[in-house]
Simulated assay, not measured.
Amino acid sequence: MSAWPMPFWVAHRGAGKLAPENTLAAFREGARHGWHAFECDVKLSADGVPFLLHDATLQRTTPERGIAGERSWAELARIDAGAWHSRAYAGEPIPSLDALARYVLANRFALNIEIKPTPGTERHTGEVVGREVRRLWAGAGSLPLFSSFQPEALAGAQASAPEVPRGLLLDKLTDGWLDTALALGCQAVITNYALMDRALVERLHGAGLKALVYTVNDPAAAQWLIGNGVDGIISDAVDRFSPAA
């Protein structure tokens, strides 16, 4: 597996809430605030094209309804993913992973790709995203980080792109979570920040894993987590935190 690719501070879904999440406009806004590492959500279109969207359905961040993964990429590429946020972003399209990779690589940014499968497509999504990342990052100096709440998605990515680092996402500490992370060859566990404390950081470090947290927007919480030894923070607050700090 490749070296750990992420700096400490990671901008959530591009620029958190300052621009429409998971769009190229959001990445540009995050970069404008000085951030150089980003997180995004990736799933598959009906015809197997990886694209950026958090929800399984379209209605929260577009004027369309229904399951996004049941649409072809040709349909998805025409959908307005910006007007829901503000008029300034009306017409901003849903980006493909291919388009995002070109932007990230051109600017030498780090990227955390959360594999966010349409329910029922977990392993297949991981396999396809793994293959695409191998193709898109071929010859690049560093690779992105894969993460997912779905172990089957990480297993798929492990099978198709074993060299790409992996992190298991957790919103609760279920039985066997550490065994799962180790079985998947993960380099990190990324938890809801409310779960993380010094004891958990030390347990992860003792297992040879990095301890990351999401989504931290409060400066006091960030300082407490830093004091307790976390290895990375994912945040919406690109206008309140300095990634150079």
Rank of each mutant, 00 (worst) to 15 (best):
G185E: 05
E132M: 10
S2Y: 14
V129A: 06
S86A: 15
A74F: 11
S45D: 02
R71G: 12
V238I: 04
N192D: 14
L169V: 02
W224P: 02
G14A: 06
K116D: 14
I115N: 10
P20R: 08
A183I: 00
L143R: 10
G48E: 09
W35L: 01
K210E: 11
G229E: 07
A194C: 02
A138D: 12
P219E: 04
Y214P: 10
L184F: 00
G82W: 08
D171Y: 11
A37P: 07
W4G: 13
I67Q: 14
G206S: 03
F146M: 01
R87E: 15
T118G: 09
R134K: 12
G232L: 05
W73I: 04
I79P: 14
H85V: 03
P117E: 11
G66W: 12
A19V: 03
Y103W: 15
G30C: 11
P219Y: 06
I190F: 07
M1R: 13
D218G: 08
E39R: 03
N112Y: 05
H36D: 07
A199Q: 08
D175W: 05
I79D: 08
D218V: 01
A3I: 03
H12L: 08
L44E: 09
D239Q: 12
C186V: 02
K116Y: 02
E163L: 02
L100N: 08
K116F: 10
V133I: 11
W84R: 11
P117N: 09
A222M: 05
N112K: 11
H36S: 04
L100C: 09
A244E: 13
G66F: 06
E75P: 08
G156Q: 01
S96E: 13
R28P: 01
V189M: 08
P117V: 03
F51Y: 15
G167M: 01
D47C: 11
F146L: 05
S96P: 15
K17P: 00
V213A: 04
L173W: 06
N107M: 03
A90R: 15
L76W: 03
I234K: 10
R13T: 00
H36P: 02
Y103V: 02
E39M: 02
S242I: 04
L182Y: 03
I233A: 10
I113E: 03
A211H: 09
A106N: 03
M196E: 03
Q150R: 08
L225D: 05
R131W: 06
K43D: 06
H12Q: 07
G139H: 12
A101H: 12
P144F: 01
L169N: 01
H85S: 12
L200Y: 05
E163A: 11
E114F: 10
N22I: 03
S45P: 06
G141W: 11
A221S: 09
V10G: 10
A46P: 01
L100D: 12
A161H: 02
G185C: 06
A15W: 00
T174G: 14
I115Q: 15
G82K: 13
E132A: 13
P20I: 01
L170Y: 05
V213M: 06
W84A: 11
